[in-house]
Simulated assay, not measured.
Amino acid sequence: MVRGLRGATTVEYDEEQSVLEATKVLVEEMAKENSISPSDIISVLVSTTTDVKSTFPAKAVRSINGWMYVPVMCTHEMDVPGSMPLCIRVLMHVNTDIPQRFIKHIYQNEAIKLRPDLQKK
């Protein structure tokens, strides 16, 4: 079964190391919380708000041990007035037997505000 895992995080500044570290932390938690290994992953789509342009967040994903062959692509989100700034979003397509209702979507930092309904209680 193919499932989509969602996640998002934010950075305080558009600075290369901040973007790479935040992306890596997010993706690693998404995989850990859903017991996903790199061989389970079909592809990863990373999007950022248009104010994030210091680096490609995909570099962070490919730097994770065992992930260098995972297909990753970056893009920008729509530039909607009033949307959350400095935001990095991830959509990971994976092969898993986990039922949809048990998938753990991960939101970190200010991005928690995007989906408060998915936060651990």
Score class of each variant (00 low, 15 high):
Met1Gln: 11
Val2Cys: 07
Val2Arg: 08
Arg3Ala: 15
Gly4Ala: 10
Leu5Met: 13
Leu5Glu: 05
Arg6Cys: 12
Arg6Asp: 06
Arg6Thr: 02
Gly7Cys: 06
Ala8Ile: 00
Thr9Gly: 14
Thr10Pro: 11
Val11Gly: 06
Glu12Arg: 10
Glu12Gly: 14
Glu12Asn: 15
Glu12Tyr: 11
Glu15Ala: 01
Glu16Cys: 00
Glu16Gln: 02
Ser18Trp: 09
Ser18Gly: 14
Val19Tyr: 03
Glu21Ser: 05
Ala22Val: 05
Thr23Lys: 03
Lys24Gly: 13
Lys24Leu: 09
Val25Cys: 07
Val25Ile: 15
Val25Thr: 07
Leu26Met: 03
Val27Leu: 13
Val27Met: 04
Glu28Met: 14
Met30Gly: 11
Ala31Ile: 02
Lys32Pro: 02
Lys32Asn: 08
Glu33Ile: 02
Ile36Phe: 01
Ser37Trp: 08
Pro38Gly: 04
Asp40His: 12
Ile41Tyr: 09
Ile42Leu: 09
Ile42Pro: 11
Ile42Gly: 12
Ser43Arg: 14
Ser43Ala: 12
Leu45Gly: 12
Leu45Cys: 05
Val46Ser: 01
Val46Asn: 04
Thr48Val: 12
Thr50Asp: 13
Thr50Val: 12
Asp51Cys: 11
Asp51His: 14
Thr55Val: 15
Pro57Gly: 00
Ala58Pro: 01
Val61Asp: 00
Val61Ser: 02
Arg62Ser: 11
Arg62Thr: 03
Ile64Leu: 07
Ile64Met: 09
Trp67Gly: 00
Trp67Gln: 03
Trp67Leu: 02
Trp67Tyr: 15
Trp67Asn: 00
Tyr69Gly: 01
Tyr69Arg: 10
Val70Ala: 06
Val70Met: 04
Pro71Phe: 10
Pro71Tyr: 08
Met73Ser: 10
Cys74Ser: 05
Thr75Gln: 05
Thr75Gly: 03
His76Gly: 01
Glu77His: 08
Met78Leu: 10
Val80Ser: 08
Val80His: 08
Gly82Asp: 08
Gly82Ser: 08
Ser83Glu: 11
Met84Leu: 14
Met84Asn: 04
Met84Ala: 07
Met84Thr: 08
Pro85Arg: 12
Leu86Arg: 10
Leu86Asn: 12
Cys87Gly: 06
Arg89Cys: 04
Arg89Trp: 12
Leu91Cys: 05
Met92Gly: 12
Met92Pro: 05
His93Gly: 09
Val94Asp: 09
Val94Ser: 07
Asn95Ser: 12
Thr96Met: 05
Thr96Ala: 09
Asp97Ile: 07
Gln100Ala: 10
Ile103Phe: 03
Ile103Asn: 06
Lys104Ile: 08
Lys104Cys: 04
His105Pro: 01
Ile106Leu: 04
Tyr107Leu: 02
Gln108Asp: 13
Asn109Ile: 01
Asn109Lys: 15
Glu110Leu: 14
Ala111Lys: 00
Ala111Pro: 14
Ala111Phe: 13
Ile112Glu: 11
Lys113Leu: 06
Lys113Val: 15
Leu114Phe: 14
Leu114Cys: 15
Arg115Trp: 15
Arg115Tyr: 15
Arg115Gly: 03
Asp117Val: 02
Asp117Phe: 10
Leu118Trp: 15
Gln119Gly: 13
Lys120Gly: 14
Lys121Glu: 09
